[in-house]
Amino acid sequence: MSATLGRRLFAEYLGSALLVTAVVGSGIMAARLSPGDAGLQLSENAFATMLALAVLILVLGPVSGAHLNPVVTAVDWWLRRRAGAAPAPTLVAGYVVAQVAGAVSGAVLANVMFDLPAVSWSTTDRAASHLWIGETVATAGLILLVFALVRTANTRDAPAAVGAYIGAAYWFTSSTSFANPAVTIGRGFTDTFAGIAPASVPAFIGAQLVGGALGALLVVVLYPQPRGSEEADRRVLTATTTERADR
């Protein structure tokens, strides 16, 4: 493994871990500080998550693209494949493995920080068709936003825009916008405010994949040709198989 690839994979692992730590940790803190007030708990959880996500994209974007999400990685691969410049399959697989491992690590870290068992399988059932629709909508919107920014060379706005979207989607989707298979898996490892029962995870991921596909189609329809230089498109939220940015 090259040093550059190692840095990218570590950045994806670290970013996914810290993202889930923020999601789960703020959920635990919200439940403890605002017992009995679900609306306030959700507000606190959403606010912390959107800020953490914005910071992580800002810090890790120049290293790995700050995908932090297997659906983003998969759509990036598909769009680049259509343009004849797809990243190597090994890079895509490495990103996904790093993201999932990081998400699980982040849930464990949050549990331990709040003096809970390192792993406590969630008992929060989230198996319902309206929640799957919510996940489809949340993920499609996220993909459209991310790749609209990339294709219009507005990636400097990505930290604020993506953070704001996820914060809003906590409230306008029925599922509270997981929109990320790695995060969904990680949240199965904590029986706290942000948890999801392991039995509910596969359907959530299925809805996210459908949403990712819909979002990718919207990108192709609305933004058929990227604007700006190829290098600008590579800087944030996209994987690359070259080491140009590191030279």
Score class of each variant (00 low, 15 high):
residue 183 V to Q: 07
residue 140 A to K: 02
residue 223 Y to R: 14
residue 166 I to Y: 02
residue 119 V to E: 02
residue 193 F to R: 11
residue 142 L to F: 12
residue 172 F to S: 03
residue 209 L to T: 00
residue 171 W to C: 09
residue 227 R to N: 11
residue 131 L to M: 10
residue 135 E to P: 03
residue 175 S to A: 14
residue 232 A to H: 06
residue 216 A to C: 10
residue 137 V to I: 13
residue 147 F to C: 04
residue 224 P to T: 06
residue 117 P to G: 10
residue 235 R to Y: 03
residue 130 H to T: 14
residue 211 G to S: 07
residue 186 G to W: 01
residue 227 R to C: 02
residue 198 P to T: 04
residue 145 L to H: 11
residue 232 A to G: 07
residue 226 P to D: 04
residue 104 V to W: 01
residue 152 T to S: 09
residue 168 A to G: 14
residue 231 E to L: 13
residue 224 P to V: 01
residue 153 A to D: 13
residue 183 V to C: 09
residue 198 P to R: 07
residue 143 I to N: 00
residue 131 L to S: 01
residue 102 G to R: 05
residue 207 A to H: 09
residue 172 F to Y: 03
residue 108 V to R: 00
residue 212 G to W: 07
residue 167 G to E: 03
residue 161 A to V: 12
residue 116 L to A: 04
residue 211 G to L: 08
residue 112 V to E: 01
residue 168 A to H: 01
residue 158 A to L: 02
residue 163 G to P: 02
residue 189 F to S: 03
residue 139 T to K: 06
residue 131 L to D: 05
residue 147 F to G: 08
residue 152 T to Y: 00
residue 173 T to A: 04
residue 128 A to E: 12
residue 187 R to A: 06
residue 140 A to H: 04
residue 124 T to H: 15
residue 241 T to D: 15
residue 202 P to Y: 11
residue 204 F to C: 12
residue 224 P to G: 09
residue 244 R to Y: 09
residue 216 A to L: 08
residue 129 S to P: 06
residue 177 S to M: 09
residue 115 D to V: 14
residue 236 V to I: 14
residue 147 F to L: 04
residue 159 P to N: 04
residue 173 T to S: 11
residue 176 T to A: 15
residue 239 A to R: 02
residue 220 V to T: 12
residue 210 V to K: 06
residue 211 G to H: 02
residue 166 I to P: 03
residue 239 A to N: 00
residue 243 E to Y: 08
residue 172 F to P: 09
residue 185 I to P: 00
residue 244 R to K: 14
residue 124 T to D: 14
residue 115 D to S: 14
residue 186 G to Y: 06
residue 246 D to S: 14
residue 219 V to R: 09
residue 133 I to N: 10
residue 218 L to D: 06
residue 125 D to W: 11
residue 141 G to F: 03
residue 226 P to H: 09
residue 244 R to F: 12
residue 162 V to K: 08
residue 226 P to C: 06
residue 124 T to R: 15
residue 160 A to P: 05
residue 197 A to W: 00
residue 230 E to L: 15
residue 163 G to Q: 10
residue 153 A to W: 10
residue 223 Y to F: 15
residue 159 P to L: 00
residue 105 S to I: 05
residue 165 Y to F: 15
residue 151 R to F: 03
residue 104 V to I: 15
residue 191 D to N: 13
residue 200 S to K: 07
residue 184 T to G: 02
residue 179 A to D: 04
residue 231 E to M: 13
residue 171 W to S: 08
residue 179 A to Q: 01
residue 115 D to M: 06
